[in-house]
Nucleic acid binder design. Structure first.
Lengths: 220, 220
DNA sequence: AAACATTTGTCCGTATGTATA
DNA sequence: ATATACATACGGACAAATGTT
């Protein structure tokens, strides 16, 4: 009998990690509502683990800004203020722009092909009005660029901000529009030509436009 | 006997918080060396608390990138690579520039006076070659601007990046130069005039120049 | 005002996994 | 290969703090 060549490590997931992932998902998608009280004892029972890993994951979620702990009193899910998208997108915009600029020297044929392929799927998602799919695919697109930038600080920060954007999507219906498709194409084009400054500019405009669209939808 | 009007709450510091602050300080100033193994039992004894709050603070330090935990194996202080300052400063630069731009509409006389006063102290520190003092005062200066920007995401991210810059100072002798004094003056001037775009540009140059100075010192 | 119920904070023992002899 | 030593991961009980009756 042949030995399975698949040496995929089971990536032993600790109780803390699975609790963290589960809770984060629930908070992002609204299963756990803003303001909801989180009793670590209850959560522990619900997840079939003890309070220790639950408490630990709650603390990590607090650093991320998804929960707020009031020592000795309570732990609750943070609010989702519509306006916070206005605080969220500007730093994301400048960091994505920076990432794109840093990525340019590292861009090769393989990366360009990936970006084109992802943008095709993005186009399909927009046209079929699968907006959550579109958001996820858009994240993939930008993730390729962030990876290519090869800067772990930017990587971590963007990851964190994106999680909050995802939460805003569920709570306040952020949507991506047709126009993003063309902007992605422009990004690819200028990356191919090695024009870092132009890429950075377009990238920033891509996000700034998203901010303004959001504002006009919600205020107009 | 009059009741003290100062209602400053003692801000009851939990064992976790004090452990976190202490460990972070030790890692930044080099008391705990890069690569050093951290045994939670030992640390707990040293700090006179139990292992739980120690573990919790170690996990927060891991998120910050100051320690790395190998589940079931070991926990150790992360390395301090000289090159990582090259990764650290660009995102810090664009975020500080953004913060400055966002701060402009909120700048008032009080803020301008604070900035001028801080820059005086900064000048003294540079001239008397108290470089660590200069770094701390420079942080104060930028903190005022970040506060004025009123964006909690930017606030948190910059805080985090600054901690890493501080660590680099201790390990690789980052120094601030004479030129920063004048740049600070330019920032104040353009803030007073409400010129957000100009402030942003100067701010970014302020940090980019720091990057280049560092490179020339370390490669030349 | 004081005792109670509830929730978080801390302690420490044990289980589990890893590296080494 | 087995056993041993050791560090972390987890569990459950107790202590401390808060709000309430």
């Amino acid at each position: 009998m042949p030995i399975p060549s698949d040496h995929s490590k089971p990536v032993r997931q600790s109780a803390k990690e699975s609790a963290f992932n589960q809770l984060q998902q629930w908070i992002i998608d609204g299963t756990l509502l803003p303001g909801e009280k989180l009793n670590d004892n209850e959560i522990a029972k619900a997840l079939g683990i003890s309070r220790t890993p639950v408490r630990e994951s709650l603390q990590l979620l607090e650093v991320q800004g998804f929960v707020k702990m009031y020592p000795g009193k309570a732990t609750q899910v943070t609010e989702v203020e519509k306006e916070s998208i206005n605080d969220l997108l500007p730093p994301l915009a400048v960091l994505q722009a920076l990432a794109a600029e840093l990525a340019v020297p590292n861009v090769d044929k393989d990366i360009l092909e990936k970006l084109e392929s992802i943008n095709e799927r993005f186009k399909d998602a927009i046209h079929s009005e699968n907006y959550y799919a579109a958001l996820k695919i858009d994240e993939e697109f930008h993730q390729i660029i962030v990876d290519a930038a090869g800067n772990k600080y930017i990587y971590d920060i963007i990851n964190d901000l994106q999680a909050h954007v995802r939460r805003q999507f569920f709570h306040n219906s952020i949507v991506l529009t047709e126009q993003s498709i063309e902007e992605h194409e422009m990004i690819i084009k200028n990356m191919r030509e090695g024009n870092g400054e132009k890429v950075s500019t377009i990238m920033k405009e891509n996000w700034v436009r998203a901010i303004e669209e959001f504002r006009s939808v919600n205020k107009g």
